[in-house]
Design a protein around this nucleic acid. Structure first.
Lengths: 181, 181
DNA sequence: TTTAACTATTAGAATATTCTAACTTTTTTT
DNA sequence: AAAAAAAGTTAGAATATTCTAATAGTTAAA
């Protein structure tokens, strides 16, 4: 009996990427990852997870045997981690620059992370780095952006004190720059 | 014989939105819109368009009779136009702020326009308005962002001359604020 | 250790989008 | 107007993702 190696070489779908990210996230939190956990995280039913695990296994992205724990292969880990990084970049932009609420920012980041090329994403991190570094921007500048949003138009308040960002914010952005780790 | 009104009330898929935007774009350029034009614009084959037109017709988003021209209904027009506006907002952000090349910006905008909520999108326009209005930002500030990208780190160049943006840029952003028109 | 409660799998169906191949209508050319 | 070309349609299949219902393993409790 001939058993074919069914590795598909076509591009991953964004749904597959979502599953890899979800599994990656779960391995950070839990000791072991199970079908049920993934189903909950992805907001789908268990049979859906079973079938996706088959797909991911065919592509050598997960190690999985029926009824056992789910583990990412190196290839799967790499993708899951990268999706997580993208998610974080977008989330920081949405929450810390655009001042969007965390819950919503998470949702939107989740959808955007698949659509943006890594080039665009690195432009965005550069932009955030720049905002953080440039003496003409700074924290008060962003604060004025908020006032601007709320009151309409008060840009004359943006005066010129040189100002840096908090260490927390800097660290946050710093981390986003690393592609591998 | 009973003929059901097959209007579906479930949410539009992003593919449907793409088609509506494509048809809207084509009506701006061409006198009449045909299946062939949509197929070209969407990069699909004609039968795919035929079948999508049926779907959109069932939802009362297009007026279409076999072999005739395609027209948007008011409902379809509204959606097509809104998708176009979203596309523009994102494209301006990508090209004018992040300095991404037009062709790539178009691609990415096309994918992002479906994923962002209108709240987030309006935060983004606010942000662009603010950058354009705030005396601490301005055109030279963005220029320094570019230098920053290329050379690594030269934010000390961001000094304090008050500076406004060109009228072209202002107009561009101004237009993006109107939701209806 | 047998039962009960979870957890997970298979089988089969539904939806959405796309394609190719074959056929039909419409338009243009000779 | 007949033939050729272009445009459009239908039918049928493929892929990806999801679901429900029914079944089967696994673990914990009595």
């Amino acid at each position: 009996m001939v058993v074919k190696n069914k590795t598909k070489e076509s591009a991953l779908t964004s749904v597959m990427e979502d599953y890899l990210e979800a599994i990656f996230d779960l391995t950070q939190t839990k000791k072991v990852v199970r079908v049920k956990d993934i189903a909950k995280q992805m907001n789908v039913k268990m049979p859906t997870v079973s079938s996706m695990l088959k797909t991911l296994k065919n592509r050598n992205l997960v190690d999985y045997e029926k009824y056992e724990y789910v583990e990412l292969t190196n290839a799967g880990l790499k993708i899951g981690k990268e999706m997580r990084r993208r998610h974080e970049v977008l989330k920081v932009f949405l929450t810390d620059i655009l001042k969007i609420k965390t819950a919503i920012a998470d949702e939107e980041a989740c959808k955007m992370e698949h659509t943006l090329s890594s080039d665009t994403l690195s432009c965005l991190t550069d932009f955030m780095n720049f905002i953080q570094t440039c003496p003409r921007a700074g924290e008060s500048w962003l604060k004025h952006f908020n006032e601007y949003r709320e009151n309409g138009c008060t840009p004359e308040k943006c005066n010129m004190q040189e100002e840096k960002f908090s260490k927390e914010f800097k660290n946050k952005i710093q981390k986003l720059n690393k592609k591998q780790s």
